[in-house]
């Protein structure tokens, strides 16, 4: 109930009867009591804020195991990881060559295909299927979908165009499609979300 204004007013009521000492003691008590109320109020807000962050059951779903044995060269699949789409694409040699042929200077967010894949598994391009512009799901992973002029992905919302390494080439998106943490637990399974060793 006590407020900052409270302490000011309280000290006004302090009469001239007591000496300087008394005034200081009085102020101390009021300031201390009001500060306690203030600190208590702020601390009481903490649970109201932390309850909004992901709960333990959400955090527990941090990894998704994907079987990639059936993804042929040139195909891709869309899987769900932490409730977000992930594109798993088996690049053809032609697509790999196209990606490697692009000079770094032509890229808005310069990264090589090798940096975006695992060593020896350069044909497996695994990215989040979330456009870095405003979060739409780009086209291009499904059979027959518009891959855009650069042969990668095309976001229909605002026309961002990605190349075969899922790097931004044209349109409003600022970054390449995000590559999540993942590791190959066997030649045909990928654990998305797992920190690679």
């Amino acid at each position: 109930m006590a407020t900052k204004a409270g302490s000011a007013e309280v000290s006004q009521t302090a009469g001239p009867i007591d000496g300087e000492e008394g005034v200081r003691r009085r102020d101390f008590l009021n300031v201390a009591a009001v500060s306690f109320a203030g600190v208590g109020g702020v601390v009481a807000l903490a649970p109201l804020f932390v309850q909004m962050s992901p709960s333990a059951d959400v955090l527990a779903l941090a990894t998704t195991e994907v079987d990639i044995s059936k993804v042929q060269s040139g195909q891709g699949i869309k899987v769900s990881w932490r409730k977000q789409p992930v594109f798993v694409r088996n690049l053809t040699p032609k697509e790999i060559a196209e990606a490697n042929a692009v000079p770094m200077s032509a890229l808005r967010d310069p990264e090589t295909l090798a940096q975006r894949t695992k060593p020896g598994k350069q044909n497996w391009l695994i990215t989040l299927g979330v456009c870095t512009h405003l979060g739409c799901v780009p086209l291009g992973i499904g059979e027959g979908e518009n891959k855009g002029p650069f042969g990668g992905y095309f976001c229909p919302c605002h026309g961002s165009e990605y190349d075969t390494a899922a790097r931004i080439r044209q349109g409003p998106a600022p970054k390449n499609l995000f590559v999540p943490d993942y590791e190959f637990t066997s030649p045909t399974t990928v654990m998305i979300g797992a920190k690679g060793k």
Partner: peptide
Amino acid sequence: LLIGTILGYLAYHQLWDE
């Protein structure tokens, strides 16, 4: 809360005594 209540009580008492 115990400390806060005691401080509040002392502040209250001082105010009302005067």
